[in-house]
Nucleic acid binder design. Structure first.
Lengths: 209, 209
DNA sequence: CGCTTTCTTGAAAGCGGTCAATCTAGGTGG
DNA sequence: CCACCTAGATTGACCGCTTTCAAGAAAGCG
């Protein structure tokens, strides 16, 4: 599933909360996540945090670094992360295609998140998030039946969905109580994907990306 | 300022609210906006709308169409629009660079908007929007001193900022009353850029993009 | 000059936020 | 093996920003 582009030798490891890239510092390589999760975020001066991207196994972090653009937001490991180091230059041929597909995918995902943050309720945001993460884990070959790992704290989830941890907690409980999802100790189980899609207010034809 | 890539012959014109691209329909060309504004948006089934991108003079609409990805969201003219038609294929050489820069710019802008929609208050969102639009108009050579055109209705602004038109109206009034901006009849005047940045809760080092 | 879109205003309600305390579980060291 | 520690999850009470609903004023346009 998770296609490797480089030999096993060039690996990096990160611990939870360790920086993978710092704001403004030109990284000397970019990464393909092999194992674990990472995130990109921005902090406002008063401490408000918004997570703007999640990197799951298989994801590139970040193609645009190869375009000569230093990271404008820090990237940090959420869990233990194992990643392949790739040269920080634009590859040619098929790998170039891959890069641009990756860039354009993340653009698409962000665009969908704008809709969620701008117009969806708390419950819809959480449904959307769980759905998207399950789908991405499935595509990475990391879902088992209707279950997958989901190693985020409720605080992380709050900073993704633009809510407070307290409200995430309450809304998650409502979702559990209504039987929409099972989600505890970093493990997600989606009984009814269609119901979850509906709860997320995702129009019929829309892809999740 | 606004560098043209094609001869004058290949032009398209659109009226306000006219579709420039429809969801899922492969466009046969992509555009560089020469005059006027356009937007990309998504509609939820109950009518909620979120605008996910604005296209100002000089902007490409949309590089990723050339990557073989049909538009996942409709694009529509906000004002009268004059645009140059470009072949819907990946250019080579310098123009390719241009495309990817454009793609990566819009990615960056979206990422900043995630922060705004997720974590900023109504006043901060509006300040951020006005600031960004002024800056983009300035870079396009379309600002005159500290003023520029801003041809959006309060409803458009609401659908960009994830607010209701009513609240946009009230918040805009508050900003006018406090002397932060002058904005009426589609014309913006920013007396104090620094104050507006502060009102937008934009951390010191951050670029607007 | 009438029509339609846009802007403005008021009152009331609600969703999600804030503050603060308590409970739980995983990890550590003795 | 258990006391302790700390991060994370949970709960309750209250607050307030933003929404909703409903009218009316203003402005743009044919």
């Amino acid at each position: 599933m998770l296609s490797r582009v480089l030999p096993n030798e060039d690996l990096s490891f990160f611990r939870p909360h360790e920086f993978i890239a710092r704001e403004g510092e030109r990284p000397d390589s970019l990464f393909q996540i092999l194992e674990g999760w990472a995130c990109r975020y921005r902090l406002l001066t008063d401490g408000r945090r918004q997570i703007t991207a999640l990197y799951l196994p298989g994801d590139y972090c970040e193609p645009q670094w190869a375009l000569g653009r230093p990271p404008s937001q820090p990237v940090m490991a959420v869990t233990n992360v194992r990643a392949a180091r790739l040269p920080c230059t634009l590859p040619s041929g098929a790998n170039q295609q891959l890069f641009f597909k990756s860039l354009s995918d993340s653009c698409e995902r962000q665009s969908n998140w704008l809709v969620t943050l701008g117009r969806r309720t708390a419950l819809e945001r959480l449904a959307h998030l769980l759905l998207e993460l399950f789908e991405r884990m499935r595509q990475a070959g990391l879902a088992y039946g209707q279950q997958c790992a989901l190693p985020l704290t409720q605080m992380d989830i709050a900073d993704i969905t633009g809510l407070t941890p307290v409200h995430v907690n309450r809304t998650l409980q409502a979702m559990r109580n209504s039987g929409l999802v099972e989600f505890q100790s970093k493990w997600l189980r989606v009984a009814d994907l269609v119901a979850l899609r509906e709860a997320a207010a995702i129009p019929a034809g829309d892809a999740l990306v």
